[in-house]
Write a protein that binds this DNA or RNA. Structure first.
Length: 417
DNA sequence: ATTGCTGAAAGG
């Protein structure tokens, strides 16, 4: 009963009373974070040094943007149910289940991977890039689970965390429903967009939209507004870290270009202010009139807004979108070398010596982007089987955890016959 | 069946 693991046990009814008894340490700002903020205030932050001064003092009192992080939403962890059922009975409001989902006895044709694995959440930009890297690997990940993270991935994540902390202060907010979690996501967009407009830079900005008929979500690594230039159009940036000072392969660059083009597409669609709100609520099965939890409302107030329902948040969201400009056609990829001895223990001490390997500008290509997405979607929609990597990119298999299971490797090994 | 959990992205 006092076992902390029972927090995630949804076999019992997840009543609201139970949720309320969870001892969540709600800290607006920890001492550590406060020290960081004060240090940030005292020191010059190069990326923000061009911040214009404002008559309003509210901005200077909060140098870092608040990002709201969902914390321990018991209704959102239905997958822990031991039955393996996708839709736990403990879920307060079960999502609509297609009528044929119980006909698992019959040899019904397999549903598309999109339907099986992403119908509730939509595709992520990461799904797109992973698919472009290798569809077969993507398929293995979906069917067999993700392989272990590599050290390079951990180091990359850490570097991104560092970059984010330069401009964003994270706050944990307890949530009780999916509506709460979407409200936080949209508030994070609103606050990030405001930070972009007033300070010229924001990081880790969540975006969402429909691409080729499919809902897609992502998090833009970085957006800057060139303050001193004539254009108001922000530029989208992504930082890639590397262990070795070798030049990235063409496949890696192509993959990163696709990623940034996804972000541009989503951003530009948001600022076009044509967001299909009703479609959104329907697709994700959300109640716009849902009353946000007290904690969520409280934090929204702390950001200077006032909202009772998810719909209220959407009003602010749409108002914000109207104020934004489409992004530049030029996208920016930054490559950064990590120190060789980047041991796990020293990963957090990289602040000095971020030698930049290269800054790589390239142009958005709407036609190429559309073709890439359509190819990816053929895989996701089950219109064709997963493709293997081309002969020229067979080297990717060296980095793949699924080679033992992969028919491509098996056939090439016994091609002797 | 990874990471700090629901999540998105992390590098190759």
């Amino acid at each position: 009963m006092n076992d902390p693991s029972s927090f995630y046990d949804n076999t019992d009814t997840a009543s609201e009373g139970q949720v309320n008894t969870i001892p969540i340490p709600v800290e607006i700002v920890s001492e550590e974070e406060m020290a960081f903020i004060e240090a940030a205030l005292a020191s010059t932050r190069p990326l923000l040094s061009s911040t214009p001064s404002f008559s309003s003092s509210s901005l200077s009192s909060s140098p870092a943007r608040l990002a709201l992080v969902s914390a321990l939403p018991s209704v959102l962890s239905p997958l822990r149910k031991p039955t393996g059922s996708l839709h736990s009975a403990a879920c307060s409001r079960p999502l609509p289940v297609p009528p044929d989902i119980e006909d698992s006895a019959g040899p019904a044709p397999p549903k598309s991977l999109l339907h099986q694995f992403r119908s509730r959440r939509g595709l992520t930009v990461t799904d797109i890039t992973a698919t472009e890297w290798c569809e077969k690997q993507m398929e293995f990940v979906l069917l067999h689970g993700k392989p272990k993270r590599t050290e390079a991935m951990k180091a990359g994540s850490d570097r991104h965390t560092q970059l984010e902390k330069e401009v964003v202060e994270k706050v944990e907010v307890p949530i009780k429903s999916v509506e709460d979690s979407w409200a936080l996501k949209f508030m994070n967009f609103i606050v990030g967009a405001n930070q972009l407009m007033f300070e010229g830079l924001t990081r880790e900005l969540p975006v969402i939209g429909v691409v080729e008929g499919v809902w897609m979500i992502g998090v833009i690594d970085e957006i800057r507004t060139p303050i001193n230039e004539a254009t108001l159009h922000p530029i989208l940036v992504d930082t890639k870290t590397r262990y070795k000072a070798t030049r990235p392969s063409e496949a890696q660059k192509r993959n990163a270009r696709l990623q940034l083009m996804c972000y541009k597409y989503l951003w530009d669609n948001l600022v076009a202010d044509t967001f299909p709100t009703d479609h959104f609520f329907n697709h994700f099965n959300l109640n716009p009139l849902y009353i946000l939890s007290g904690d969520v409302k409280e934090y929204i107030v702390s950001l200077g807004f006032s909202a009772k329902t998810l719909e209220d948040v959407f009003t602010y969201f749409r108002d914000t979108c109207c104020l934004l400009s489409p992004s530049q056609g030029q996208l920016l990829l930054r490559r950064q070398i990590l120190p060789l001895a980047s041991l796990p223990s020293s990963r957090y001490e990289l602040q000095s010596d971020h030698s930049l390997l290269e800054e790589y500008h390239f142009s958005y290509d709407a036609v190429w982007f559309k073709i890439q997405i359509q190819e990816c979607l053929k895989f996701w929609l089950g219109e064709r089987d997963a493709n293997y990597v081309s002969q020229a990119e067979r080297w990717k298999c060296q980095f793949c955890a699924f080679t033992a299971k992969c028919p491509l490797i098996a056939t090439s090994n016994k091609r002797a016959e």
